[in-house]
C-alpha cells in the first residue's frame, strides 16, 4: 500500500490535475497549486544533489581511496560557497532595510559569493565547455570518413554550413547576383535551403516522433501502466 498504491495514486492524481487544468478554467487554480509544489520540490532537488555530493566525497575521504585529496578540495570549496551564500557573508546591505543582514544582496562581485561566481565558477564552466572545440577538431580528423552516400551527404552539408556561416561564403560566391538563375549556387542561399527546408523537415519529423513518444509514455505513467519508477527505490 505505502510502497505501491499511494505513489501510483499520487502520480495519476497530479498528472490528471495538470491535464484538467489545461482543459477547464475551473481547475486552473488546482493546476497552479500543484505547479507551485512542483517548483518548490525542484529547489529541494538541489539540496538533494548537494547531499549526494557530500555523501560520495565523504565516503571517498574516509576510505582514503585514490584521489581522496581532490574530494577534500571539492568539499572545502562546497562549504565555502555554501557559507558565502546561505549566510550572505559580506552582502551589500539593502538600501531600504540596511539593518536586516539577510535582506542584503550577495550576488554582486563585491560580495564573496558573487566574486566566486564571477572569478571561479564562470571561468571554470566556460572553459570546461570551450574544451569541446579541441575535441570536435580531433573527432573531425579521425572519425569523419566519406565511406558511402550517407556520409558524403553529411560531410558535404557540414562543409557548406561551415563555409556559409563565415565571411568565406560571401567571399567565394557573393558576386553571383541574387536575382540571377545561378543564385542557388550562393553559399548563403544553399545554407537557407538546407536549414529551412531539409533540416527543418528532418527535425520536424524527429519532433513529431518524440512528441508521440512523450505523449505515449506520459499516458502510460498516468494510467498506471508503466510502474518502472517504483523500482527506483
Amino acid at each position: 500500500m505505502l510502497q505501491r498504491t499511494i505513489p501510483i495514486a499520487i502520480l495519476s492524481l497530479s498528472g490528471i490535475i495538470l491535464m484538467l487544468a489545461y482543459f477547464s478554467p475551473l481547475t486552473t487554480s488546482w493546476g497552479e497549486t500543484v505547479l507551485g509544489w512542483f517548483n518548490v520540490l525542484a529547489a529541494v532537488a538541489f539540496v538533494l544533489g548537494a547531499g549526494n555530493l557530500l555523501r560520495v566525497n565523504l565516503e571517498r575521504i574516509s576510505a582514503q581511496r585514490s584521489g581522496w585529496a581532490y574530494s577534500a578540495i571539492t568539499l572545502v570549496s562546497f562549504f565555502a560557497m555554501l557559507a558565502f551564500g546561505l549566510l550572505k557573508l559580506g552582502a551589500v546591505p539593502s538600501e531600504k532595510h540596511p539593518d536586516k543582514h539577510f535582506a542584503g544582496a550577495y550576488e554582486g562581485p563585491t560580495a564573496p559569493y558573487g566574486w566566486m561566481y564571477e572569478y571561479v565558477l564562470s571561468p571554470l564552466t566556460a572553459t570546461m565547455f570551450a574544451m569541446l572545440a579541441f575535441y570536435v577538431a580531433s573527432a573531425a580528423f579521425r572519425a569523419f570518413r566519406a565511406k558511402n552516400t550517407e556520409s558524403i551527404l553529411l560531410l558535404g552539408t557540414a562543409f557548406i554550413i561551415l563555409i556559409a556561416q563565415t565571411a568565406a561564403g560571401m567571399f567565394l560566391t557573393g558576386w553571383i547576383p541574387q536575382d540571377s538563375v545561378f543564385a542557388f549556387l550562393r553559399f548563403d542561399s544553399m545554407k537557407i535551403a538546407i536549414t529551412e527546408y531539409i533540416q527543418t523537415a528532418g527535425m520536424r519529423a524527429i519532433t513529431i516522433g518524440i512528441a508521440l513518444g512523450v505523449a505515449a509514455t506520459s499516458l502510460r505513467l498516468i494510467l498506471g501502466v508503466d510502474k518502472s519508477y517504483l523500482s527506483k527505490s
Binding site: A133, V136, A137, A140, F141, R142, A143, F144, R145, A146, L155, A158, F159, L162, I163, Q165, T166, A167, A168
Partner: peptide
C-alpha cells in the same frame, strides 16, 4: 566571428586530411 573563419577552414582541412 573573426576566429570562426579560420577555425572553420581548419575543420574542413582536417576532415579532408583525415580522409
Amino acid at each position: 566571428m573573426g576566429p570562426q573563419l579560420v577555425a572553420h577552414m581548419l575543420m574542413i582541412g582536417l576532415i579532408i586530411l583525415g580522409n
